[in-house]
Design a protein around this nucleic acid. Sequence first.
DNA 1: AACCTTATCTGCATCAAATGCTAATTAGCA
DNA 2: TGCTAATTAGCATTTGATGCAGATAAGGTT
Lengths: 140, 140
Amino acid sequence: MRSPEELTVAFRTAGLKVTPQRQLLFRLLHDNSSHPTADSLHSAATSVMPGISLRTVYQTLTDLAQMGELQSIEVGSGSLRFDPNVSDHHHAVCDDCGDVHDVYVTKAPVLRGLDDFSVSDAHIVYRGQCGACSALVATK
Amino acid sequence: MRSPEELTVAFRTAGLKVTPQRQLLFRLLHDNSSHPTADSLHSAATSVMPGISLRTVYQTLTDLAQMGELQSIEVGSGSLRFDPNVSDHHHAVCDDCGDVHDVYVTKAPVLRGLDDFSVSDAHIVYRGQCGACSALVATK
DNA sequence: AACCTTATCTGCATCAAATGCTAATTAGCA
DNA sequence: TGCTAATTAGCATTTGATGCAGATAAGGTT
Ligand SMILES: [Mn+2]
Ligand SMILES: [Mn+2]
Ligand SMILES: [Zn+2]
Ligand SMILES: [Zn+2]
């Protein structure tokens, strides 16, 4: 996702308006690698701008996704997560704390049984235990 | 997933009862490679046993999953899909018709950036176009 | 075969995530 | 400064899934 400044220009160019709510979300999302949900973003936004609507958060996320500024991913946590990192990457989900980490796969997996299917995209979800959680268990 | 006969024994052994509803679901699921949703299963079941409750379908699916007889997968179609094939495999989802196909990956993908994460499981979701849909487009 | 205990079924309520809808507001160009 | 279309906020609605409880039935026991 581009910087808040660049997004401001991009939104105006697209005929969209740049509101304080959107500017805040631009800032909250920029360089955010936590893969937040709409709800967690709304919580973060509320502490800065009380009264901001969850509906507005969804709206802006949808706009950003349509502009290709972010992707939405589904890792089995029940709700969509949003990722301003739109580079080609995958995800590791900690079964203990639920945190989502980026994973870069250097080599595409070899396939079998996909003779009759043309693949346009692949997404891998790894599950396991993150470093922080394994450290926690070790000290206990 | 084991055969309806074997499941009958397994359920009784586990202290669970084998009802006509469950027997029907055992049959509908056995060797079913369509990755059905709870709802589609309920539709299929209803045509054989009118009046069977969607709640019962969910119940039985949960039981079977807990017994390890099937797995539930999430491929971004909005609802959970159930898979009596519990062997280690992955899935290809057609963007046109939504059908889900099994994929067997012969070589685990090489990773980068996962130094601090112990992986216990990985699931790949491929997206693209299935053979039937590409054939349809070709004839149009 | 009749009985009894306990799991199950069904229907309905509830929940959570996400989207639809609209009056009031506001961004931003003229 | 005004105008107009986009946006916001709040509420309703939708959908998938689960909670709940009285009526029912499986299946072991006698
Ligand atoms: Mn990511
Ligand atoms: Mn499968
Ligand atoms: Zn963790
Ligand atoms: Zn298809």
